[in-house]
Each structure stands twice: as C-alpha cells, then as structure tokens.
Amino acid sequence: MNILAFDTATAACSAAVMAGGRIVAHRFELREAGHAEHLMPMVEAVMEEAGLGYRDLDRIAVTVGPGTFTGLRIGLAAARGLAIAADIPVLGVSTLETLAATAFDMAMKSGATVIAAIDARRGEVYAQAFEADGNPASSPAVLSLADAAALAAGKDTVLVGTGATLLAPLIEAAGGTARCGEGPGLPDAGVLAEIAARRAIVPGVAPPAPLYLRAPDARLPATAPQRWPR
C-alpha cells in the first residue's frame, strides 16, 4: 500500500511516503509560518524520492487537528485537492493521536497513561488521554491546564506535545509522576503514515474536516443588524 502523509497543523511542516510497509521518503522541518508556500514543494520532493506518481497512491493521510486553524486548513485543502484530482481517498488523523503514537513504547513498559497536549495559548491546551495500549481514555478537548492535568488522575503519566511542559509541574504537584516523551513534541508525517496504514477506509464517507475544538472568535452584535424593511 502506497501512502502520502503530511502535516501542517502546528509549528512544523512534514511529509512522508510509505510504500511496501516502510517509510521510503520523509521530510520534517520546524516551521512557525509559511506552510502554504512550503508544503507542496515538500510533497513533490517526497513523491519524487519515492519514485511514485500521485495516481500510484492508495490513500492520502493528513492531520485534521487540533492545531492552528490556518495550518489545519492548509493541510486539509491540499489533501482534499489531491484527493479529487487523483481520485483517491483521504484519511484524517488527529494531531493528538499522532503525537501520542510516539509515546506508547515508553508508556507500555510501566503501563502509564499517555497525555498528548498541544499548547493552545490563553492558558489552555488541546489534550487527550490514552491508555498505554493506545486506546483513547478521553475525547480530544480544549481544556484549562488544571483540567488537562487532571486527566492523569494521579497515575504514572507520559506527556507528549508542546503542552507537556505546561502540564508536568501540575501533575507532579498533585502527587502523580510525569515524564515527557522524546523528540520535539510536534506531529510528524512519518508517524501519521504508519497510523494511516493500519486504519480502514470506509467507502463513500465524506472527506475529513478540520477538528478545530474552538468556535470562531466572533460575537453577535447587541442589536440585530437588520431592522428594515419592517
């Protein structure tokens, strides 16, 4: 199975191609901005390195969020554009699951809980807890630091993501133990491709949409904008 995977959901940009069960091309760069410019050249580079044409792909995998709203849309617009153009399915995977996948090896040894957390600013994180075997223990949510730390429930915890250092002291203060996962704590397309390879695609299902977790920052005016015609 040939998979093209990419991620632009947070402060990184990455792309990978999996063929014959292994990653044959991979790029990852730290990137705060400019995903819209850099993503497609990166995708072209991994496809060329893998020696594949777009119509040789069996599926496209993309992170759906949570993350920066703009980053999610860049990745999803590209993935859904490739999907209609090459007539192949897109599979959306959450960024939190992509992050957590890097911590299960570490968690398995001690049966620890994994909490994937992305700094969402405003004193909040996007977070989700997982059992050491990979099963989700909570739903992805935007939480206060205290509420996210409470996901640990006093258990031995492995933290992964940019929110890890925000939560670790709170978990420790509550009497739990918290270890931080390895690596930059940002989603990686190589991990994403591996998750996508294991997942079933349901035919006829709508393409994935962004998982924002926050409503648009817009307030309705105090008085209705339209009073006429009466």
């Binding site: 819209a36 497609m40 703009t70 860049i74 617009a77 590209a78 554009g81 490739l82 153009a85 090459a86």
Partner: peptide, 19 residues
C-alpha cells in the same frame, strides 16, 4: 482574507501537481 485565500490556492496547487 488570507485564511480563505489559502484554501483556494492550496486546492489549486494540489490539482496542478497531480495533473
């Protein structure tokens, strides 16, 4: 509005590279 512009442009880029 840059958020919207990006969506259309990325879609176009994707179609352009495939074909």
């Amino acid at each position: 509005l840059i958020g919207g512009v990006m969506v259309g442009l990325m879609t176009a880029k994707a179609i352009a590279v495939v074909h």
